[in-house]
C-alpha cells in the first residue's frame, strides 16, 4: 500500500500473460502483487464484474416484469382504458392533477388494495434500486481489494444516493 513498497517492487519483471496488469500497477498506489497473486486477483475481479452484471440483469428483468404486470392490472380494472378508439383520453392520466402513489405509505396502501398503478410504481422503485445496489457492491469490492481511497469515494456516493430519498421527506 505504501509508496516505499511500490518503489521497492516496481522493478520486478512481469510474468508472461499477466504483463499488462503488472505494468499498470507498478505506477499505481494499489497493493503490489506477485504475478501469481495478480492473476488470482484478476480472476476475482472478473468474477465480481460478472456478478454485478448478473445482479443488474436480474434487477432490471424483475422490475420490468412487475411494471408490465401492474399495467396489465391497471387495464383489467379499467375497461374503458383499453378501447383502441373512444372518448376517454389518456390526458386524464397524464395531467398535473392525476392521482398516483408517491410516498412509501401510499404505495403500501395501494399495493394492499391491489391497485395496478401501485404495482407499476413498485416496479419503478425496484428499477431505481439497481444502480444503488451496484454502488453498494462497488464499496464491498474496493474494500476487498484493500483500495481504501476508492472505497471512501464509493461510500460517499452511496450515502448521497440513500440520503436523497430522506432529504426529499420520505
Amino acid at each position: 500500500m505504501t509508496s516505499e513498497r511500490t518503489d521497492a517492487t516496481a522493478g520486478q519483471e512481469p510474468a508472461e500473460g499477466a504483463g499488462e496488469r503488472i505494468e499498470v500497477q507498478a505506477t499505481s498506489r494499489r497493493r503490489q502483487l506477485t504475478p501469481e497473486q495478480a492473476a488470482a486477483m484478476e480472476e476475482k475481479i472478473r468474477k465480481v464484474e460478472i456478478a454485478i452484471s448478473l445482479v443488474l440483469r436480474i434487477g432490471v428483468s424483475v422490475s420490468v416484469i412487475v411494471v408490465a404486470t401492474g399495467l396489465g392490472i391497471m387495464f383489467a380494472h379499467h375497461s374503458h382504458y383499453t378501447s383502441i378508439t373512444g372518448g376517454y383520453s389518456y390526458s386524464h392520466l397524464t395531467s398535473r392533477s392525476t392521482v398516483f402513489p408517491h410516498s412509501f405509505s401510499q404505495l403500501g396502501t395501494g399495493l394492499a388494495s391491489g391497485e395496478g398503478r401501485a404495482v407499476v410504481v413498485l416496479g419503478v422503485l425496484l428499477l431505481i434500486l439497481t444502480p444503488i445496489l451496484r454502488v453498494a457492491v462497488g464499496v464491498l469490492s474496493f474494500l476487498y481489494e484493500e483500495d481504501i481511497p476508492m472505497a471512501i469515494v464509493t461510500t460517499y456516493v452511496l450515502a448521497v444516493l440513500i440520503g436523497s430519498f430522506f432529504l426529499a421527506g420520505a
Binding site: 408517491h102 419503478v124 426529499a168
Partner: peptide, 28 residues
C-alpha cells in the same frame, strides 16, 4: 448516468413527478 439519475429519482418520486402510466411504457 444510472447512478446520477438514481440520486434525483428518489426526490422526483416523493414529489409526485413519476406518473406510472407514463413511466411504465417509457422504462420498458
Amino acid at each position: 448516468i444510472g447512478v446520477t439519475a438514481a440520486a434525483s429519482a428518489g426526490v422526483y418520486f416523493i414529489r409526485g413527478q413519476i406518473d406510472p402510466i407514463i413511466a411504465a411504457p417509457v422504462a420498458a
